[in-house]
Structure formats: C-alpha cells, structure tokens
Design a binder for these strands. Structure first.
Length: 400
DNA sequence: TCTGGGGTCCTAGGACCC
DNA sequence: TCTGGGGTCCTAGGACCC
C-alpha cells in the first residue's frame, strides 16, 4: 500500500495574478483571470469570491461578468505562473524525490518509505508541513489530498480545498468514494456522465452495487471494468516523472469567424512559424504535421501528414500545413472560428540528420534542405536578439 | 452571451507486410 | 487460384484533463 499525496494549488492563476500585481489584482477580491469582457475567451481561474456568484473556470468570460458584474478581468500572468509552478515543485522535491508534476498547478508525491525518515509521523502531519513550507517559501497556498491511489489522493485534495489537508487512511477508500458523484471521478467527463445518468446512475452509491460484468455490459469491457475499480478508489498508484512531450501545437480562435482562404492562410502562417520555432528551441524535429480547423458551427476537423523525413524549418512545416489547410477547405468551405497547427512524431536533431543521410540516394526530392534549416536558425537568432517582430515572414521563409 | 489553449490517450478503419 | 491472420503504421475523430 503506497502513501501518495496530491498537492494542488488553490485558484492558482488567481494567486499568481495577485502576486504579479499586488497593487492592482492583488487588491481585488472579485477577480477573473483569462478572457476579455467582449471577446470569445473563457475564464481560466475564478477567485473564490466570484464563485459565490456562480463564476467557474472554463466559463465564457462574458458570461461570468454577467453573473458578477463587479469583477475585474485580468489576463493570465504567464511568467508568474511559470515561476511559481517551478518554485513550488522545488519545495516539494525537498520532501521526496518522487515528485510528478501532473500539470502546472498539481503534483503527485510518493512518500512510501519515508516513514522512518519522518519519525513515523502521520501522513496528515507530513502534508501539513509541506503546506507550510510551500507557503513560506513561495507565497502559494496549496491543498493536499492523501491516499493509497492517485484517484483517492486527487479527490481528497478536492475535499481539502481551500487551504486544507485531507488524508484517506488505507482501507478507507471505498467508504470515502461513496461521498462523490460519478462526474467527480477523474476520467468521467460530460459525455460519460450523461450516459451514466441516462441509465439512472448519478452518484457513486448509485453504481457501486453493480457487478463488474454488469458495468462491462453497459459500457463495454474496458470502460466498465475501469469504472468498477474507480468506484472503489482503486487505480494506479505509480508516481513517476512526466514523459517528454509528444506533440507541440498552437491554435487561435478569432474574434470573428474568418470566411476566406486568404485570411486563414495568413493566420496559419503565423501559427506554423511559432510551432516550428518552439520545435527548434527544444532541439527537435517532427515527422507529422497536423492542421486543425473549427468551423463556425463548432465542428472540429483535422488533417495530418506523416513524412519519412523529420522537419524543423519554417518553410517546410508551413508548406505542409498549407497543403493540409487546402484539403480541409476543399472538403468544407465555411466560416472558421479557429485554426491550429501541430507537430508530432519527434526525433532529435541528430537522429533527423541520420535519416536524411540514409535517404540521400532516394529519388524523391527532400522536403527540407540544409538551406531551409540555416534560414530558420538565422531567424531564431534574430528573434532572440531583437524580439519576435524583427522578422518578416517573407524573409524568414527564404522566398524574399 | 454561447463555448480557450495546450496537451494526452483511445478507437477504428485501411494499407501494407509477412 | 484462393484463402487467412497478426502486427504495425497512418489518419481522423473524439473524450478528457487543467
């Protein structure tokens, strides 16, 4: 039986916004982070005070403002969020080497085997010391949940908020789970929750009496068995460092739907260049390029292409992206609210070079040449020295 | 008043190879 | 000449998380 903790920052973006601007956002009790009053953005984090009015994260900001007209809206303080996220993680690492950053504001800790080190204090006592240390060293308020599995630790942290600690003792998982709705279980989203509700199942007690085979019959073997164990607080208890990223993508929702191919291509270019430069900054090349479009009616479509040769240059990645956008637009040409570009199937720069060497005898022309790569790297250097606006797309792409 | 941006994982069908 | 099964890769879509 493992001893896991989930450390979760309370209203993380709100805390960061207040720390970033003590005289402004720092004085606002009714604070919404993310989006704008007029635009299409949503709330990333709503202060506890605005939640009294019904404001929630992921809610359109305009809607949140109608619920709470006195609220102040500020943009996500990205830099401060990065600084505080890393700072919190550093504090956590002083308690155990087994720290898994699950997201920007959450981390799992495995304290199994630290009992002697911590003089056999309770997990609750350790959690309180961690909470105090994080506050003292980073000024960030966290809540902690403890339990033998990740799902139990996660739900315990929800129960602990705000600024609390809740530890579920070994053997107490099943009973603890009875206090939740199915929708609260991580992995049960809106779609599955609605499907369960249509079968008369809303809370954990509604479903916990069903046999595993019954749930499998209702949801399919995989999901049914998965849910059967989740209902009892069973699941993974593995805490390990996050694997390296598998994809990089950038997307943008426009203030108004774009109707023409020309407008969309212009946005696509900016996004492709951002993706490509982020890719190079991480020393990677990518074999797959994906373009995503979300039409005005919210239908989302993707097109992707995987190549033998891994790419890193602005020119090559944009060329593929353009082709994919044309495919999507040919299939359905209607107003688009969003376009996005992503890359995946990474190799490191070194591996990429190897592959290109092997392909040297191939008759197919290389999609990306050394000249493309040199141009892109030169653009990276200019950006580094003079800022993002120093580069004009024409020059950057080598056709100017 | 509609509904962000950055990710991960899963599924399912078809191509292709052995 | 007809038949098949398994494994892997690719593509598209979608659920889900924070």
């Amino acid at each position: 039986m493992r001893r896991l903790l989930l450390v979760d920052c309370d209203q993380f973006f709100v805390q960061c916004a207040r720390l970033a601007d003590p005289e402004g956002a720092g004085r606002e009790r009714l604070l919404l982070v993310g989006g704008t009053p007029e635009g299409r953005g949503v709330v990333t984090s709503a202060s506890y005070e605005t939640r009294e009015f019904g404001c929630r994260s992921a809610m359109p900001t305009a809607q949140a403002l109608r619920l709470c007209p006195e609220a102040t809206v500020v943009p996500v303080p990205r830099a401060m969020c990065g600084v505080k996220s890393r700072a919190v993680r550093e504090v956590l690492k002083t308690f155990t080497p087994l720290v898994e950053a699950a997201s920007i504001d959450e981390a799992y800790l495995d304290l199994t085997g630290t009992e002697a080190l911590y003089h056999h204090e309770s997990l609750t006592a350790t959690a309180r010391r961690i909470q105090a240390a994080v506050k003292a060293e980073t000024d960030i308020v966290v809540s902690l949940g403890g339990g033998p599995t990740r799902v139990v630790a996660k739900l315990a942290a929800e129960r602990a908020k705000p600024a609390g600690v809740h530890v579920v003792e070994p053997g107490g998982e099943a009973e603890f789970m009875l206090g939740f709705d199915l929708r609260d279980i991580p992995g049960v989203g809106p779609v599955l929750a609605e499907r369960l509700r249509s079968m008369g199942l809303v809370s954990v007690p509604d479903a916990v009496g069903l046999e595993e085979s019954e749930l499998e019959g209702m949801l399919g073997a995989g999901r049914g068995s998965w849910l059967y164990h989740r209902l009892r607080g069973r699941g993974s208890d593995v805490v390990e460092p996050r694997a390296p990223a598998k994809s990089i993508s950038r997307e943008e929702t426009f203030p108004r739907d774009l109707r023409t191919d020309e407008e969309l291509e212009r946005e696509l270019m900016a996004l492709a260049i951002r993706v490509a430069s982020d890719l190079r900054r991480q020393g990677l090349r990518a074999r797959t390029v994906t373009v995503k479009i979300k039409d005005g009616d919210f239908r989302s479509r993707t097109a992707s292409r995987t190549l033998d040769q891994p790419l890193e240059s602005d020119r090559a990645i944009l060329a593929i992206a353009r082709e994919l956008l044309a495919t999507l637009r040919k299939r359905r040409r209607t107003g688009a609210r969003l376009v996005g570009v992503g890359v995946s199937h990474f190799s490191t720069g070194e591996e990429g070079t190897q592959l290109v060497l092997f392909d040297a005898g191939d008759t197919a022309p290389a999609l990306e040449t050394d000249r493309d790569r040199r141009l892109s790297r030169a653009a990276d250097e200019l950006r580094e020295r003079f800022g993002h606006d120093a580069i004009r797309p024409g020059r950057l792409l080598g056709d100017g």
